[in-house]
Write a protein that binds this DNA or RNA. Structure first.
Length: 665
RNA sequence: UGGCUUAUGGUGUAACUGGCAACACGUCUGGUUUUGGUCCAGAAGAGUCUAGGUUCGAGCCCUAGUAAGCCAACCA
C-alpha cells in the first residue's frame, strides 16, 4: 500500500523548490541537446535518463535539440543514429529541433548587441587573443580592437556574414570583462567565420555561433525551464546567465542551468573523440561494435532498453565524480534477461559423448521448459540420441568431490533428459580425450549433484559465437597523464567460437536473445545469414564455481582484494574493536576487552602512541588504547609524560567506561 | 599564484533538512533447485577527509586545513 517514498535527487529538489515558489507545473520543460558529431554512449544514457526521466515524472515535454553549430564535425548520419538510440531507449521527445533553426534570430540579437556596445569584432590572430586572455591565475588585458566604433563593428560583422573575409580573419566577441576571474567571461567569442557546408542550412551561412552564445538562447527560445548538463559546464553558467540577461523579456521564463556529475564506467572510455579513434583505427568494427560503450554497441551486444534505464536509475544523480563498476551494469542486464530470455542448450567447446546402451538409430524428442522464471513461456522439444556433445570443462577423468560435473564412475543429469554414468574414455595419440563413453538410466528421479547441458550431434546446428572481453585492461584507461589510452587495449577482447546449438534455434532472428543454459546470455547478431547463425555473448551467468577454482590467472581482473583479516596488524584490529566498543552489549564488551588485551601483547609502544591523539569524541578508540596501554605498562613499559597526559584526560572524561578503564591503569 | 565544485563501507547513492548512518551492486556463509543460474535466509564491511568549535545532541551548522575534479579550443 504505502509506496516507500524515494528520496529526491538534488535536481528533483531544485524543481520541487521552484514549484513550491510559484513556478506553474505547466511551465516545466526539459531538453536533451546532443551534438551530432558521434554516436551516443552509455554516459549519454544518464543524461537522457535524467531529462527524459524528469519529463516522465512531471508529465512535462522534453525537446530533442541537436546542437549543430559546428559544420566541420557534424553529419546527418549522427542525427539519424541519435534519434534511433533515444527512441530505442523508449523515450519520445516533444519536438525535434536544431540549434541551426535559430541562426537568424541569433544573428539579429548579435546585431543588437553590437548596437548596444555589448559586442565587437576582433581581428587579431587566435594566438594574440589567447595571450591577452591571461590564464586561470592571471587576469587578461584588453585587446586593440575592443573599442571599435559601433558603425565599424556593424560593417565588419555584416561583411563577415556575406563571406567577404577568410576563416580566421575576424570574430565577433561579447564585450564583458577581460579581468574577470572566470575566464569564460573574458570577452567570449560569439561568432567565427567558417566557410563550410552545414548539414541543414547548406551554404547559407559563412559565420556560425559558438556554443555559449547558442545554448542558453536556444533554451530561452524553447522556454526550457531546467537546462541540465554535466559538471564541466558549471563555469559556463555565469556566461549562460549573462547572455540571457541581455535579451530576456521579463514576461518570459528564464531557463535555469544546473549541472550533475557525468557517468564514468570502469575499464572503459567515454570520450567521443577517443571512441571515434577506435572506429577510425579499426580497433573495432564500427560505432556499434558490441565492445563499444555506445548505445548502439550495447544494443548489438544484446542489452535491453530496460536494463539500461534501470542501470541509470540505480546509479543515481549527484555532483561528485564517480566511477561505476561494470558489475552493476552486468547485474542490470542479467536481472532483466533472467526474466525474459528463453533458455536453450548450446555447446561452445565440445567433446563427444557416446551413450553405449542407447540404440544406434534411436532418437527421441524430449520436452524442455523454455523459461522457469516465466510460466507463459511454454515448452519446446529437443532431440536426444546416442551421440552428444557436452562441454570439455564438464568432464574430468578424476576430480575432487566439489566437482559436481561428470567424472569416470560418476553420475550426472543431462538437462531435460536422462541420468548418465561415465564408464570410460578414448584418447588420441597425444592423450587428448576424443570420446567419453557412458551408460544411461531412464530413471530420472534419482538425486545427482550435477546437471549438464548438451546437444545431439546429429541434430545440432553449427553457429558462430562471438565472445567479448573488456576492451581495456586498465580500470581507467584515459586517466593516466603519461600514457595513451591505446596502450591499455586488450588484445583478446574478441574470441571467435564455433559452437553447436540445439535445432530449435534454426529460425532465430536478428536481435533475439537467449540464455544458453549454464553459460550466459546471447543475442543473434545482424551479420547472421540463412546459412550461418552468429551469436554475440551479452554477458555470462554469475559463476560461483569459477570463483572457487584455484586459478592462476587471478589478479588480472580484480583491481585488488582487501587483505584478509587474519593478516591485519594487531594495532589495527585493536583500533577497530575500539570503534565498536561503546555500542556493544556488556558481555560482548568483556570479550572485546579480552581480545584487546590479548592483541596488546603483540604491539609496541611506538604503534600505540599515535593513537593518543585520537579525537576526544572517539571514546571507543580511547578506551581500547587505554586497555592496551595497561597491558604494555604491566609488561614493563616505563611511564612518561605522553602517557600521563593521555590518562589524565581519560580520568576526567565524562564517559564512565573510559574513566573506569583509566582508573585501572 | 586566482575562481568554482566535491569529499559517507571496495563501488554508487541515501539519511524526512540537527536525533540510533540506510539501500543497491560486489564479497562471504547457509538453504532450495533438472542451470555451480534464479530464488530464500544471514554475515562481514563506514564513527561520514583532518583538526577545532556551536549544541542536550553534528554526516548535516561554523572556522581553519587537506585531497580530488573543472576553468587558458575560432569544440560542444
Amino acid at each position: 500500500m504505502s509506496e516507500d517514498k524515494k528520496s529526491l535527487n538534488f535536481l528533483e529538489q531544485i524543481i520541487e523548490n521552484d514549484l513550491a515558489n510559484g513556478l506553474p507545473k505547466s511551465k516545466l520543460r526539459f531538453r536533451f541537446p546532443p551534438e551530432p558529431n558521434g554516436y551516443l554512449h552509455i554516459g549519454h544514457t544518464k543524461a537522457i535518463g535524467i531529462s527524459f526521466g524528469l519529463g516522465e515524472k512531471y508529465n512535462a515535454p522534453v525537446n530533442l535539440r541537436f546542437d549543430d553549430t559546428n559544420p566541420a564535425k557534424e553529419e546527418q548520419e549522427y542525427v539519424d543514429a541519435i534519434k534511433e538510440d533515444v527512441s530505442w531507449l523508449g523515450y519520445s521527445w516533444d519536438k525535434e529541433l536544431f540549434s541551426s533553426d535559430y541562426f537568424q534570430q541569433l544573428y539579429d540579437w548579435a546585431v543588437m548587441f553590437i548596437k548596444q556596445g555589448k559586442a565587437y569584432v576582433d581581428s587579431q590572430s587566435s594566438e594574440a587573443m589567447a595571450e591577452q586572455k591571461g590564464t586561470p591565475t592571471q587576469p587578461g588585458v584588453d585587446g586593440p580592437y575592443r573599442n571599435r566604433s559601433v558603425a565599424e563593428n556593424l560593417d565588419l560583422f555584416e561583411r563577415m556574414k556575406k563571406g567577404e573575409f577568410e576563416e580566421g580573419a575576424h570574430i565577433l566577441r561579447a564585450k564583458i570583462d577581460m579581468q574577470h576571474p572566470n575566464m569564460l567571461m573574458r570577452d567570449p567569442i560569439m561568432y567565427r567565420i567558417l566557410k563550410k557546408h552545414h548539414h541543414r542550412t547548406g551554404d547559407d551561412w559563412c559565420i556560425y555561433p559558438m556554443y555559449d552564445w547558442t545554448h542558453g538562447e536556444s533554451d530561452y527560445i524553447e522556454q526550457i525551464s531546467h537546462s541540465l548538463c554535466s559538471l564541466e559546464f558549471k563555469a559556463h553558467r555565469e556566461l549562460y546567465n549573462w547572455f540571457l540577461e541581455q535579451i530576456i523579456d521579463e514576461k518570459k521564463l528564464k531557463p535555469k542551468q544546473r549541472e550533475f556529475a557525468r557517468l564514468n564506467l570502469s575499464y572503459t572510455i567515454m570520450s567521443k573523440r577517443k571512441l571515434l579513434k577506435l572506429v577510425e583505427d579499426n580497433i573495432v568494427t564500427g560505432w556499434d561494435d558490441p565492445r563499444m560503450p555506445t548505445i548502439s554497441g550495447l544494443r548489438r551486444r544484446g542489452y535491453t532498453p530496460n536494463s539500461l534505464r534501470k542501470f541509470v536509475e540505480t546509479v543515481g544523480v549527484a555532483k561528485r565524480d564517480n566511477v561505476i563498476e561494470v558489475s552493476l551494469l552486468e547485474f542490470c542486464i542479467r536481472e532483466d534477461l533472467n526474466k525474459t530470455a528463453p533458455r536453450v542448450m548450446a555447446v561452445l567447446d565440445p567433446v563427444k559423448l557416446i551413450i553405449t546402451n542407447y540404440p544406434e538409430d534411436k532418437e527421441e524428442w524430449l520436452e524442455a521448459e523454455n523459461n522457469q522464471e516465466d510460466d507463459s513461456a511454454g515448452y519446446r522439444k529437443v532431440p536426444f540420441s546416442r551421440a552428444l556433445y557436452i562441454e570439455k570443462d564438464d568432464f574430468k577423468e578424476e576430480a575432487a568431490n566439489n566437482f559436481f560435473r561428470l567424472k569416470l564412475g560418476g553420475e550426472v543429469r543431462l538437462k531435460n533428459a536422462y541420468i548418465i554414468k561415465a564408464e570410460s574414455v578414448t584418447k588420441d595419440a597425444k592423450g587428448n580425450i576424443t570420446e567419453i563413453h557412458c551408460t544411461y538410466s531412464e530413471d530420472t528421479s534419482k538425486k545427482v549433484k550435477g546437471t549438464l547441458h548438451w546437444v545431439s550431434i546429429k541434430h545440432a546446428i553449427k553457429a558462430k559465437v562471438r565472445e567479448y572481453d573488456r576492451l581495456f585492461m586498465d580500470e581507467a584507461p584515459d586517466s593516466h597523464p603519461d600514457k595513451d589510452f591505446m596502450e591499455f587495449l586488450n588484445p583478446n577482447s574478441l574470441k571467435l567460437i564455433d559452437a553447436f546449438v540445439e535445432p530449435s534455434l534454426k529460425d532465430a532472428r536478428v536481435g533475439e536473445r537467449f540464455q544458453f543454459q549454464r553459460i550466459g546470455y546471447f543475442s543473434v547478431d545482424k551479420d547472421s545469414t540463412e546459412e550461418q547463425l552468429i551469436f554475440n555473448k551479452t554477458v555470462g551467468l554469475r559463476d560461483s564455481w569459477e570463483k572457487q577454482k584455484p586459478v592462476e590467472k587471478v589478479n588480472q581482473n580484480k583491481p585488488q582484494n582487501n587483505s584478509s583479516q587474519s593478516q591485519r596488524k594487531a594495532i589495527d584490529v585493536i583500533q577497530q574493536l575500539g570503534k565498536k566498543y561503546t555500542n556493544l552489549p556488556e558481555e560482548k564488551q568483556q570479550k572485546a576487552k579480552a581480545d584487546i588485551q590479548e592483541l596488546a601483547k603483540n604491539i609496541s609502544y611506538e604503534e600505540l602512541q599515535p593513537l593518543f591523539n585520537t579525537a576526544a569524541k572517539k571514546v571507543g578508540t580511547r578506551i581500547a588504547v587505554t586497555i592496551a596501554l595497561d597491558v604494555l605498562l604491566k609488561g614493563g613499559l616505563q611511564t612518561n609524560s605522553e602517557i600521563n597526559e593521555f590518562i589524565e584526560k581519560a580520568l576526567v572524561d565524562e564517559n564512565d567506561l573510559l574513566k573506569k578503564e583509566a582508573q585501572l591503569v
